[in-house]
Simulated assay, not measured.
Amino acid sequence: MSSPAKHNCSVCSLKKICLPTGVGKDELERLEALVQDTKVHHTSDEVIRQESPFRNLYAVKSGMYKSVKLNDLGEERVVGFHLPGDIIGLDAIYTKTYSSSLVALTTSVLCQFNYDQLVLLSAKMPTLQAQLMRLSSKEINIANAFQNAQTAEQKLAGFIHNLSARNAERGFSSTQLILSMSRQDIASHIGMAPETISRILKQFQSNDILIINKREMKILDPARLLISTGCAHA
């Protein structure tokens, strides 16, 4: 079995999201020596299993993944969607086990960081320590986005708005979205029935807020979408 390929962070289009700001050439080379690409994952591939031992952090290089968590009753819930540049595994640092399973939603690739080696390197690179703290804080903010939404419409509008903002951060269109996840996955993530998702999406289309063609979504009126989240006023 061949070993994963060495990654070249300096030419990666996502380096502004993943890498510490102000990192020097020598520091970058030391960091690159730790990073490896995983094999290509295909739709429905399970990459990490819930409660498996924590050894690595991962960054999404391409594609999209979802995190899925089983409760004590064996019920499954989607707890997150991961776009290119997202770091996966930060919540496992304390418990030393992964709190959820990671499943590919499309043909996707991860960058892999051995955590113990990363800690040793961060002791010599204050900018790397600061970046790990920043990314941990960012993950908390993403998880808490629109958690105060009261209605089903606010929850779904908040999810779409958050996905739009994350796309824009990566240099992608904020109004042309590809929904790699199923409506069942979206429903599981925000805590409502798939039928409710379909009803609200039809309502948003009738109100000319957005249009959907299969898994392609176009946001026609970002301002009204934001108002629908309950976080802005008309």
Rank of each mutant, 00 (worst) to 15 (best):
R134V: 10
L121D: 04
L57G: 08
L220M: 09
P4R: 06
Q147M: 10
H82D: 02
E139L: 12
I93S: 09
K155H: 07
T107A: 03
P20Y: 11
K6P: 01
L163W: 00
S198D: 08
F172C: 09
E32D: 03
A143Q: 03
T229G: 13
T107L: 10
A187H: 10
E169N: 12
P20K: 11
G85Y: 02
P84F: 00
V79N: 04
D91R: 12
Y94A: 10
H42I: 00
P126C: 03
I87V: 13
V119R: 05
S122W: 00
F159R: 04
C111A: 09
T38N: 02
T229H: 13
R55F: 12
Q50D: 04
P20Q: 13
R55Q: 12
I197P: 08
Y58R: 06
Q176S: 05
K214F: 02
I93D: 05
N167H: 11
E76I: 07
Q150W: 10
V47N: 08
L34K: 03
L179C: 11
M1L: 04
H42T: 02
S206W: 03
K96N: 07
L128G: 07
G89H: 08
L118W: 02
I87M: 09
S137N: 13
H189T: 00
T21Q: 15
L102Q: 09
Q50S: 12
K66I: 03
T97L: 08
E29L: 08
L105N: 09
K138Q: 06
Q36L: 02
M64C: 15
G63S: 11
Q184W: 10
L28G: 15
R49S: 12
C231Y: 14
K69H: 14
L179I: 08
L19Y: 14
C18E: 09
M192K: 10
H82G: 01
T43W: 01
L201N: 08
D45L: 11
A59R: 14
K96E: 07
I190Y: 13
I209K: 05
H233T: 15
V11M: 11
L57Q: 08
Q150D: 10
Q129E: 10
V11D: 09
A234C: 14
E195C: 03
L210F: 03
V35N: 04
A187V: 03
F172M: 11
V79M: 05
S188Q: 15
I93V: 15
C9T: 03
A123C: 04
A104W: 01
Y65E: 01
G230E: 14
K155C: 01
V60F: 14
A33D: 05
Q176N: 12
L14R: 10
E75H: 08
H7A: 11
M125K: 09
F204V: 00
G63W: 00
M133R: 14
L120R: 09
N148G: 10
Q150R: 10
E29R: 14
L179N: 07
T21E: 15
M133C: 11
D86F: 03
G85L: 02
M217W: 00
A193H: 15
N141S: 09
K155R: 13
S52E: 11
A123N: 07
S198W: 03
L102D: 01
L226W: 05
A193K: 14
V35H: 06
D208F: 01
H82M: 06
A232N: 11
E76P: 02
